[in-house]
């Protein structure tokens, strides 16, 4: 009888310990690449918003209104642990409607690992680089969105 109770306790313990914490990622500020002009899409171009510093562009891209990096808050993690963040890239942008060339989000400017504080929270800024197709096609005057995933391991 006592053995059965022990086995049940051990089983419940195993289940509790195997259940991951409900960690969260809050995007306090989204990653914005601003408003840009595609002057020439026959050559490769890009717009870069660094995690720290000034946005810049190359190739046939001009910046009309500069963007800003994202501010991410990782919360409800164990205290003082190292989070390793890996962006799942590259991804292509999409538009709500219309036939247009797309951008490729090929690089994210983010520390490879961060340490949570005593409350299990870690804040980090995230930049990135968006590349034009360079294929000569036309970009519609509209908003382009890229959704990607951050793999967090600890």
């Amino acid at each position: 009888m006592k053995k059965n109770v022990l086995c049940m306790w051990l089983g419940v313990s195993c289940l509790l310990m195997a259940t991951p914490l409900t960690a969260n990622l809050y995007i306090e500020e989204p990653l914005l690449f601003g408003t840009i002009i595609i002057r020439d899409n026959t050559i490769p171009g890009s717009v870069t918003v660094p995690a720290y510093g000034h946005p810049s562009s190359s190739g046939g891209v001009l910046i009309l209104e500069p963007g800003r990096p994202a501010e991410l808050i990782f919360s409800d993690y164990p205290p003082y642990i190292e989070l390793t963040i890996t962006p799942m890239l590259p991804v292509q942008t999409s538009v709500v409607s219309g036939d247009t060339e797309q951008f490729t989000l090929g690089n994210i400017d983010l520390p490879k690992s961060i340490i949570t504080d005593s409350t299990g929270v870690a804040k980090v800024k995230m930049g990135g680089t968006l590349k034009t197709s360079g294929a000569g096609g036309y970009y519609l005057n509209t908003e382009y969105k890229a959704v990607f995933y951050l793999d967090v391991t600890y």
Binding site: L25, I27, P30, L31, L32, F33, G34, T35, I36, I37, I38, V47, G67, A70, L72, P87, M88, T93, F103, L105, M126, G128, L130, Y139, L140, N141, T142, E143, Y144, K145, A146, V147, F148, Y149, L150, D151, V152
Partner: peptide, 10 residues
């Protein structure tokens, strides 16, 4: 995996 998004306006 946590989802994130980025946007640009042309």
């Amino acid at each position: 995996s946590k989802p994130a998004a980025a946007s640009v306006t042309v």
